[in-house]
Design a protein around this nucleic acid. Structure first.
Length: 843
RNA sequence: GCGGGCGUGGCGGAAUGGUAGACGCCGGGGACUUAAAAUCCCCUGAGCUUUGCUCGUGCGGGUUCGAGUCCCGCCGCCCGUACCA
């Protein structure tokens, strides 16, 4: 080798072209090799790749390249989650068409990804806004409709009364529309739903088999699905109320602690009361203000309206309970009515305190404490039932069963399983999405578009001058003839939630016939995805929806796969410190980008005026805080391998990674350091260096294990260690072997550098080379360091042969002068020996 | 509000209940150089009465011969909360 410096500006492009020309990363589904499907969550084409993408895709890339070296036929595809709101926002702000904007973004981002040298099979690229893709999606949607998994019902949306449009939750800020500033209202619309609840039990059960998913994600999904056993039962009415009120409770054991009944604002009884009580109508109207998010509903003050109605306690004819309308009761969950037990439910406690209702204790830590007062909050924990007639003395579990049994034998209630999971509303009143393939006919009702007329494509000539759905107001698009009777009819103008697009894209990557969404045999070859990598923010919705679609497609006989993702990994964010000043006039912070600032050990100054700016917390990179670093600029300066190395170094991949200029410079230096070491390769060197051979083989094994566990930061540390040891070693055949091993170890992480070195050694593409074999005999050391402790405190260390007997280690410990000084003649009560580890003397 | 997670030197972090701080960054000292850059070597948790000792893994308790790791109770930050993707 000759070049003193590795020049990424030349090498990056050279090897990227070499891989493309050779089709190195084109997946062959007919290969005889075992298959492995590596997938990272595909990006929304916002315009620029950001560091979070780079980190995500670098991790998948290391796995893909490593598995290829391990003899797998690897599928590692890339595409675009291309529908969604930002394109419409751009259309409104800049007057560009969402399609054109999206296509331009995709072109730009694809070029960026290619400059990082990812081992992607670009032959399978697609965007969800391709009519071909969303046409297949429409066909799948019709299949689900035929199998009964699609239906329509009323549901609540955020309504902006000024802009006359539906708002997304993120467009509602402090209860007001983001553009108009008007108070948002809840409004009911007839919308399309998918019956995910049909699969609730199966989705829950399946979590148990997903052993290679993070425990936290499985827990979050379990809680989201929220299976609960409880009781639905009726409170009988007292005149003038005529109908009984059916409630659902997960705590029927606390039934003697009930002090009120509360119904949802849209419960039939609430509506009935409102019809003759203007105050009740006003209260319900007030409940309609504000947005629809759970967080908002839960955080708002618990408000109620006393209807004046009363109901009877099921176990005591002399016990009446007041009926309230309450803003925290949801019509969608259970029966839309609850019994309030203030002593043992925090929300009920707050409500009872506010409206001066009795707070009764029916659960206590022991029967003697039946009359203990509450300490300002409800007690939801376990205990013994008290003050509850025939339930007294029972455990919570036993009391639940007893109440359910009595309700069922008395025919006034029924034990029931209720799910927190709700059916998935997929209607969006927006343009830039997959049109829902249905036609509304006055005589035939809702009619599916015949499959031979798919795709239903979006019209190009739309305007975003005024808020609202351009499909709805397009002059001709929605006017069609009914496929059934031929009469004039109207197209559905709602489009599908973009989560539908991302619920089956992984199947389309695996197989893309023109005439069908996918080929089941091809899908069977690749699925399930071996490693799925993405952000923790998708822990529930996207991952649950994808699991549901996979099941739904299996249910309709389309595929034979049950779980789409065998192993899941959720990576952390890329963060950066923020630079700001408080604007004197408005009192709000003004943020500055890293390139506008000079960072010193003490603080930071703005380049423009050399005056100080405040260095703020290290937070997720975001445009609004201007703490973003552009991957392109960094690659131009340091090369792709330095950036990739930085993404893998230091921080564990599941945690946040703080970007720093010093860090990337250190990585760039290491690329050059390895290059110098590779240049010192001498194929003709002779002689053996046993210690270095051990280190080499131990490192190969450890790096492999670390990559397989996705502990890239540990693999990086191992490579640093072996690099240091190899640099220090004198020339020998062992050292030459160590250098060759390092080229292999670097190959998945710094592929351009590795190819350059491998070529200089006269070899072909290292991307095609096998992972080096290890000699098991070289993996174990023959000496170990033994810690000598007194009462658990370290007093000395000695080296001993590996596997030395307990007696030997004990004798070694007692011979230590430091140990003896610490023991100071005290009587030894016990000696604990952990072989190959430590000896602890207890006095 | 509810569900989930995280917390270790100046910084990122390592550590099957068994030597806390591997590895990297920053910083300090030195070598090379006319000089600088690059590179190489050494030091680098705090404190002390320094062959060594004490303290130290967000805070307060506990279990254990031994706790960053296990248990109980807090605090702080992050993610999600069903129309952001």
């Amino acid at each position: 080798m000759t070049d003193a410096r590795f020049d990424p500006a030349v090498a990056d492009e050279r090897w990227q072209r070499a891989w493309t020309d050779a089709g190195t990363f084109t997946a062959d589904s007919n290969s005889a090799k075992p298959k492995s499907y590596i997938l990272e969550m595909f990006p929304y084409p916002s315009g620029r790749i950001h560091m979070g993408h780079v980190r995500n895709y670098t991790m998948g890339d290391v796995l893909a390249r490593y598995q290829k070296m391990r003899g797998f036929e690897v599928l590692h595809p890339m595409g675009w989650d291309a529908f969604g709101m930002p394109a419409e926002n751009a259309a409104m702000e800049k007057g560009v068409h969402p399609g054109g904007w999206t296509r331009a973004n995709i072109a730009q981002m694809k070029a960026q990804l290619q400059r990082i040298g990812f081992a992607l099979d670009w032959t399978r690229e697609f965007a969800t806004c391709d009519p071909e893709y969303y046409g297949h999606e429409q066909a799948l949607f019709l299949d689900l409709y035929e199998s009964g998994l699609v239906y329509r019902k009323e549901s609540t949306v955020n309504w902006d009364p000024v802009d006359m449009t539906v708002l997304a939750n993120e467009q509602v800020i402090d209860g007001k529309g983001w553009r108009s500033g008007a108070e948002v209202e809840k409004r009911k619309l007839n919308q399309w739903f998918l019956k995910i609840t049909d699969f609730a039990d199966d989705l829950l059960e399946g979590l148990g088999k997903l052993e290679d998913w993070p425990e936290k994600v499985r827990l979050m999904q379990e809680n989201w699905i929220g299976k609960s056993q409880g009781l639905t039962f009726k409170f009988e009415p007292l005149v003038p109320l005529t109908e009984s009120i059916e409630v659902y409770s997960t705590r029927p054991d606390t039934i003697f602690g009930a002090s009120f009944v509360a119904v949802a604002p849209d419960h039939p009884i609430a509506l009935e009361v409102a019809s003759h009580q203007p105050d009740a109508a006003a209260f319900i109207a007030k409940c309609k203000q504000g947005g629809t998010t759970a967080a908002e509903l839960e955080k708002q003050e618990k408000l109620g309206y006393d209807t004046g109605y009363e109901v009877l306690h099921p176990f005591d004819n002399g016990w009446t309970l007041p009926v309230y309308i309450a803003n925290f009761v949801l019509m969608e969950y259970g029966t839309g009515a609850v019994m309030g037990v203030p002593g043992h439910d925090q929300r009920d406690f707050e409500f009872a305190t506010k409206y001066d209702l009795p707070i009764l204790r029916v659960v206590a830590s022991d029967p003697a404490r039946a009359d203990e007062p509450f300490k300002g909050e409800a007690e939801a924990g376990d205990g013994v039932i008290v003050n509850s007639d025939f339930l007294n003395g029972m455990t919570v579990e036993a009391a639940k069963a007893e109440v359910i049994a009595r309700a069922e034998s008395g025919a006034w209630g029924e034990g029931r399983t209720v799910w927190r999971l709700r059916d998935w509303g997929v209607s969006r009143q927006r343009y830039w999405g997959t049109p829902i393939p249905f036609i509304h006919c006055d005589t035939c009702g809702v009619v599916p578009v015949p499959k031979d007329q798919l795709p239903v494509t979006l019209p190009e000539d739309v305007s975003f001058d005024i808020p609202g759905n351009p499909l709805e107001r397009h002059p001709t698009w929605k006017h069609v003839d009914c496929p059934k009777c031929g009469a004039a009819a109207r197209r559905e103008t709602d489009t599908l939630d973009t989560f539908v697009d991302s619920s089956w894209y992984f199947l389309r990557f695996a197989s893309q016939p023109a005439d069908r969404p996918f080929d089941p045999d091809e899908v069977a070859k690749w699925m399930p995805v071996q490693h799925y990598i993405g952000g923790i923010e998708h822990a529930i919705l996207h991952l649950l929806y994808a699991r549901f679609w996979t099941r739904a497609l299996a249910h309709t006989g389309k595929i034979a796969v049950e779980e789409p993702f065998a192993a899941l990994f959720t990576q952390g964010m890329v963060t950066h410190e923020t630079y700001s000043r408080i604007d004197a006039g408005r009192g709000v912070p003004v943020y500055y980008a890293p390139e506008e600032v000079r960072r010193t050990a003490e603080g930071a100054t703005l380049l423009a005026d050399e005056a100080a700016v405040e260095v703020g917390r290290v937070i997720k990179m975001s445009k609004s805080k201007k703490n973003v670093v552009d991957p392109d600029a960094i690659i131009a300066r340091h090369g792709a391998d330095a950036v990739r190395w930085f993404m893998l170094s230091d921080s564990p991949p599941e945690r946040d990674l703080p970007w720093s200029d010093a860090g990337i410079e250190g990585c760039a230096r290491f690329v050059q350091r390895l290059w110098r070491l590779f240049n010192a390769y001498d194929a003709a060197a002779t002689g053996e260096d046993k210690a270095l051979m051990r280190k080499t083989h131990q490192t190969i094994a450890a790096v492999a294990a670390d990559i397989e566990a996705l502990s890239f930061n540990k693999a990086v540390a191992r490579i640093y260690e072996l690099t240091g040891a190899t640099e220090k070693a004198a020339p020998s055949a062992s050292r030459s072997a160590a250098i060759r091993a390092l080229v292999h170890l670097a190959a998945p992480m710094m592929p351009h550098l590795a190819e350059e070195a491998w070529a200089a050694m006269g070899e072909g593409l290292i991307a095609d080379a096998p992972w080096p074999e290890v000699d098991p005999a070289l993996l174990v050391d023959d000496e170990v360091t033994i810690a000598i402790q007194h009462m658990g405190k370290l007093r000395d260390t000695v080296t001993a042969p590996k596997g030395a007997s307990k007696d030997t280690l004990e004798a070694l410990a007692l011979a230590s002068a430091n140990l003896q000084r610490s023991v100071d003649g005290a009587a030894i009560r016990k000696i604990i020996v952990v072989p190959d580890r430590l000896v602890n003397i207890v006095t």
